[in-house]
Design a protein around this nucleic acid. Structure first.
Lengths: 244, 244
DNA sequence: GAATGTGTCAAACACGTGTTTTAATCCGAA
DNA sequence: TTCGGATTAAAACACGTGTTTGACACATTC
């Protein structure tokens, strides 16, 4: 037993482990933890089923490793969702970007979307990893989003009311991910095309901003202090493309 | 072999079959088709596992029978969702009732809610029964709801736009059903209490009506022909309890 | 070149699932 | 009472799942 740490224990060691992680991320995102089979993961990774036990311990430990590996970098604090934190933009424009980012993250199938897709899966089919995901990702993002909404509403809303509004906006995005099958049956066309995603993001933004601004108006227009004209003007971000 | 048709083949025959249907409805609604086990169903029905094969054929046929048995009666046409079709009410009030009925139907656990709960399950975990459910229940209800929304918006919206608005409203309701676990983790309190359901229904109604009326206002207030004052007034159904 | 430890593989294992088998039981009809 | 079909029950079956086993190949080290 040499005291020297084997920095690179084996060339192939890291290779199989990496391919296992990559294949597992895709299968977990596509099927969820429960319906993902170790045999499919290993087949796509070109490895033997025993490799999971050898490199990770068991299926659940592999799942945890996938969550750890695919986790997005902090990128200036845990609460910065993509490019929606640009301080030079108005709150409404940041809202539009957040919705669009969120929708594309969970609907597209690029390698950057794996973590978001797995989280969307966890919401409807929780595993023991849910607590960790809530604390490290979902709650910070939700808090950040609630702060953004309060910028638009102005004061006069309780934290509970702000939370309900945030849920109303987010639920529209998740709906197209979770209920995609039934929506496609309902009006018989593919949902995931980029063009349709753009349209969906525009609608959800327009619908939600219209609701938020009207609720703020009803609650008390005079309480609005910061940049009141911008918030009260019923802007139509669904018509004027903000992003891209 | 007697030619006389055995109108009541056996007293216990119908009994086991009925108890099997009842138990299966509860288990299917609670766990979904996939996670429901025939052994749990039979244990709750006080029957042997072979009874499913004997009385129905297999698990899937039992599921179909449950859907058939728990289906709500037409009740004046297939598109009348509960008491939300009362023609004496304004469109906004019928909207509020529809949202409230929908939310309670999928969140509560009474025997009348089984079919709705199973349908909510089908949306995120479809089975081969989905096509039938879409054609017979989901699509008619969705069409009815879109007609209701068009009453509020007035003309000037395409069918696609109306459909998006309907989805935005429905998605908020389904969110609390499908993502209940993560929401409870997020702010650590039970979601399903009747008091909280009332509050959720009020919020979703207020949020959605605010959005719809504002979008209609932006689109073109002059196009509104029927009862314009009622639709344009930003009523606050979240404050004035409409139902109950 | 032999020894050692690491990584891999096919096969087997343990377990839960839906389904079927086979015999026993029930109950009305003759 | 006896017969015969209908119904039930326990056990076994077939299959897919995650996991483990034991042998094997390979590179490194002595």
């Amino acid at each position: 037993m040499s005291n020297a740490i084997p920095a690179e224990p084996r060339a192939s060691q890291a290779a199989t482990r990496r391919q296992l992680l990559s294949a597992a991320a895709g299968v977990f995102a596509e099927r969820g933890f429960r319906d993902a089979t170790v045999r499919e993961i290993c087949r796509k990774a070109g490895a033997n089923v025993a490799a999971i036990s050898y490199h990770f311990g068991d299926k659940e430990a592999l799942y945890s490793a996938v969550l750890r590996e695919t986790a997005p970098p902090p990128a200036g604090g845990p609460n910065a969702p993509g490019n929606a934190a640009d301080a030079t933009l108005s709150a409404e424009e940041r809202f539009a970007r957040y919705i669009r980012n969120f929708l594309f993250q969970i609907a597209e199938d690029g390698p950057d979307c794996l973590h978001s897709r797995i989280m969307a899966r966890e919401m409807i089919e929780p595993t023991r990893a849910l607590d960790h995901l809530v604390n490290d990702f979902i709650r910070p993002q939700h808090q950040w989003f609630q702060g953004l909404i309060r910028e638009i509403t102005g004061p006069g809303f309780t934290v509970e009311e702000i939370r309900l509004i945030a849920n109303s906006a987010i639920s529209q995005v998740l709906f197209y991910k979770h209920c995609g099958t039934v929506i496609e049956r309902l009006h018989g066309s593919a949902l995931l095309t980029p063009a349709r995603l753009e349209m969906l993001a525009d609608h959800i933004t327009a619908f939600s901003l219209a609701a938020i601004q009207t609720l703020a108006l009803q609650r008390g227009p005079v309480q609005r202090t910061a940049r009141p004209n911008r918030a009260l003007r019923p802007s139509t971000p669904s018509r004027t493309r903000l992003t891209r």
